[in-house]
Design a protein around this nucleic acid. Structure first.
Length: 281
DNA sequence: ATGGCGGCTCGCAGCCGA
């Protein structure tokens, strides 16, 4: 066998690089509302091993910081920063490489509900959010949701100036478009789909953020949440409310964005599925 | 019109999520 014939296929297949230029690196980022980290830890561990992401944003950990299962996460090969409380809310960022510049909450916004954590990983500003649900458009929680989204948007405008490479991941509790809803007529004007909420989502896009999921052709009826009741998952009736938004400099690096429905099909699942995007930095 | 499932709490029923 000649050396030349061995050599050429190796270059063509891209398996080896002798280029003096910097090799492109892939950053696989994800978001997942786990609906209790304690209950979903086995699912998470399996998923981390199977998917091998670089950064994972978690919501609804429902765990106070003193009881956070840090050792288990580290055993899976991740470092971690988190901000939680018992029973409700709670967010975390898992990363292969250690995170720096960790920010808990929206600066200057006193909120006992733990819904925001941000950190820098491999030069990318990662912002993990759990947007208030709102309950219904007539609930007191609805104006809280809209005010919260305004505060988030103002803060992100600043954050983008200091961190142009920014990814906003999380449970937005907003279905941005009728495509993102299994029954748009029934949901019209309802919480998660109401016009003020969709306008709030639009204002995030107006910061220059891009909905990475819609950069690609996607199957019809792509959702990220399905109600536990009435066999909604099996009937493929859900909403797309978990999102990965990318800043203008980051969006062109996005190679894929997918919903991983497998986790929702497992025994004792979270009602949300993970969303995963790959960036070629 | 209501609840339907699942997780939580010093639980044995009620709150909350979406």
């Amino acid at each position: 066998m000649s050396r030349v014939q061995d050599w050429i296929p190796a270059i063509d297949s891209g398996l080896h690089s002798t280029s003096p230029h910097k090799v492109q690196s892939t950053l696989k980022i994800a978001t997942w509302n786990v609906n209790s980290l304690k209950v979903r830890l086995p699912h998470l561990q399996d998923w981390l091993a199977a998917q091998s992401p670089d950064v994972v944003c978690l919501q609804e950990t429902k765990t106070e910081d003193a009881k956070f299962c840090l050792a288990d996460i580290e055993q899976s090969g991740f470092s971690c920063c988190f901000s939680g409380q018992r029973t409700y809310n709670g967010v975390a960022i898992l990363s292969r490489q250690p995170a720096t510049e960790v920010q808990i909450g929206i600066p200057g916004y006193e909120d006992p509900q733990k819904r925001v954590i941000a950190a820098t990983v491999e030069g990318v500003r990662i912002v993990c959010i759990y947007v208030p649900n709102g309950e219904s458009v007539t609930s007191d929680k609805y104006p809280y949701k809209l005010a919260w989204l305004e505060r988030l948007t103002s803060w992100l405008a600043e954050e983008l100036r200091t961190h142009p490479q920014l990814a906003l991941l999380g449970d937005f509790n907003i279905a941005p478009d009728d495509r993102d809803v299994y029954d748009p007529k029934a949901w019209a004007g309802q919480v998660l789909c109401s016009e003020p909420e969709r306008q709030a989502f639009q204002r995030l896009l107006e910061l220059g953020l891009v909905d990475s999921f819609r950069l690609f052709e996607q199957p019809e009826r792509s959702y990220t949440w399905w109600d536990y009741r009435m066999n909604m998952f099996k009937r493929k009736l859900g909403l797309r409310i978990d999102h990965i938004l990318l800043s203008a400099p980051l969006a062109p690096t996005c190679r894929s964005c997918l919903v991983d429905r497998d986790m929702r099909a497992r025994e004792r699942p979270s009602d949300h599925a993970p969303v995963v995007a790959e960036l070629a930095l």
